[in-house]
Amino acid sequence: MVPLSYYVILSTMVFVIGVIGVLIRRNIIVILLSIELMLNAANINFVAFSHYLQNINGQVFVFFVLTVAAAEVVVGLAIIIALYRGKATVHIENINLMKG
């Protein structure tokens, strides 16, 4: 059996990649993907802990997270499309009407 620590290391790596992606990438679509990575890192944790603890709650939590993530992406993509219609760009450097 794969020890728990492997899963936790994997999820931490995925999470850190997601955080770095949000912070340094300049394309909103890629930022959206990075946020999905962060959510899925948490999902890996939930499933791994759930199996390790023999407790079903974690897997139930994953279902909720998946559903919420889907709803969030729907709204996010709609906002990006509306933004693209006005500006014809998805780069956040060009989204800078307000500063401070």
Binding site: N45, F49, G76
Partner: peptide, 17 residues
């Protein structure tokens, strides 16, 4: 907002573990 939700969720997953 969703960035912060992701961070919060990872924290919750650690608490659960």
């Amino acid at each position: 907002g969703s960035f912060s939700s992701g961070i919060l969720l990872f924290g919750i997953s650690l608490l659960y573990g």
